[in-house]
Amino acid sequence: MPITFKLQTDSADPLSKQLTRQIELAIARGDLSPGEPLTSVRQLARELQINPNTISKAFAVLVQACSLASQPGKGYFVAHTETRFSENEIERQIKNAAESFVVATRPLGVSRQRLLKALEDLLPEDSSRG
């Protein structure tokens, strides 16, 4: 794996969060490709000189977020975007997120236009799947 991690002690973010974020960034930038294996927990612990539980915690968070997939005995791999979510699951999650947004903004009493603009401002230009 070509990426190196830089963890800072005494920073605003705990170590596991720094690790999670750096892995997410590497995936987003394409430094890590789908299906590519990550350095093992053991190897990372040796290189970074930190408690392996911290590394496992970071990996577990990423598995939960579906950025990584774990294969028992083989380690952790970057998840394939195509197999990350089924169509049903996507539908369900969009609906949940949309409902949360509507519930949160209803008490504000602002226009539909304004709310839609807020969403548009945040969403990236191109969405891969449609």
């Binding site: 005494d10 170590l15 612990a45 000189q49 408690n51 392996p52």
Partner: peptide, 27 residues
């Protein structure tokens, strides 16, 4: 310590005054 900890899974009590070590090594 981190590697052998992974292998053996012991209960470790580690006293130190170094914040660097505390933050990196302890759960």
């Amino acid at each position: 310590l981190s590697q052998t900890f992974l292998d053996d899974g012991p209960c470790v009590i580690f006293s130190t005054h170094q914040m660097y070590e505390l933050e990196r090594m302890t759960d």
